[in-house]
């Protein structure tokens, strides 16, 4: 019996979400008195480091690309079979979401995607209705696949470097070719961001975004926007958070000049702390906020930037 964790890396580094998955898997292994084995299929500078978060062994087999989920799922299946995995854990990322269903079918396993808690008697929690309800779901099959929602566990260093062995599984031929990848470098992607500064129609125009970028710069935050702002082309489509855009769960979400329509809230209501700055005291967003500032954003934001700058010194 074992717990197999599929670990993603990005340009040789492990994202926080990857370490969370390893830690999550290690906690299950501890519960079950079994072993947590990490499977890594992309380049990594220091695979042994996964041992610190609880992996007892790292199987490393590089694939040219992760994009073809048929190929990746096939390797996971082989690794799960070879190691008698009862649980298969992965991140609830864009890759994880495209893999989880595939792997569950291959293993004839139960699946919960986007779990927010560790299993207790094989039951996990998951948010439904964009965070408006929580379900406790029991995984009843012998094998279980779980994709873990970001920020659900806080990974701690609980071990030391793990032995790394080369994987010798057979990779099938892929049917999907990557032509191009366009990502903004140096910025934490929204689904993984801890701090998010977001602005809406109250900004009046794209030329006024300087104060938003400034705040993001001071805090090391990622910028986001509301749907109307993305639709009118003031900001790029990938910055749109909300029901039809990206769903986020940062520690701090600062919403500036956004009224807080239910579709917007659906994408951000998993944030730990929400600050709303709006000149309309009746803006629905204040009902979902922890801290509110009623005032003209063109006065308030520069003042807040100054206060953040002072704090950071």
């Amino acid at each position: 019996m074992s717990v197999l964790i599929f670990v993603e890396s990005n340009k040789g580094k492990f994202k926080k979400s990857a370490l969370e998955a390893v830690y999550y898997g290690a906690q299950i292994a501890k519960q079950k008195g079994s072993e947590a084995i990490a499977l890594l299929c992309s380049p990594a500078d220091n695979p042994a480091e996964l041992g610190k978060y609880g992996a007892s062994k790292v199987i490393h087999q590089n694939l040219e690309s992760h994009t073809d989920n048929m190929v990746v799922a096939d390797l996971i299946k082989q690794a799960a079979d070879a190691n008698g995995a009862e649980y298969v854990i992965m991140t609830n990322s864009s890759l994880g979401k495209s893999l989880a269903g595939r792997v569950a079918i291959k293993l004839d396993a139960s699946l919960v995607s986007g779990a927010t808690s560790l299993p207790e008697s094989d039951s996990v929690s998951k948010k439904l209705f964009s965070g408006k309800a929580i379900a406790s779901i029991k995984l009843t099959a012998d094998k279980k696949v779980i994709s873990v929602m970001g920020n659900s566990v806080i990974p701690e260093e609980i071990g030391s470097d793990a032995p790394v062995e080369a994987g010798s599984y057979t990779a099938r031929t892929g049917r999907v070719t990557v032509k191009e990848s366009k990502t903004s470098d140096g910025v934490v992607p929204l689904p993984e961001a801890e701090l998010v500064v977001s602005a809406g129609r109250g900004m009046k125009g794209p030329e006024n975004w300087g104060i938003i970028d400034e705040m993001a710069g001071i805090l090391g935050a990622t910028t986001a926007c509301s749907r109307p702002v993305a639709d009118t082309g003031w900001r790029p489509h990938h910055e749109h958070v909300g029901q039809t855009g990206v769903a986020i769960r940062p520690n701090l979400y600062i919403a500036i000049g956004i009224s807080g329509a239910i579709q917007h809230l659906a994408g951000v209501n998993n944030s730990k702390t929400i600050v709303v700055i709006n000149k309309d005291p009746e803006a629905p967003f204040f009902k979902a906020a922890d801290y509110g500032v009623v005032g003209d954003l063109f006065d308030v934001v520069p003042r807040l930037n100054e206060a953040f700058r002072k704090f950071k010194q």
Partner: peptide, 21 residues
């Protein structure tokens, strides 16, 4: 292969704390 044990509602948000602009 799954069984819903129960549904719950998330704990409600406490009232917003307003800060002097």
């Amino acid at each position: 292969k799954n069984e819903i044990v129960s549904y719950t509602m998330p704990a409600g948000k406490s009232a917003v704390k307003l800060i002097d602009p």
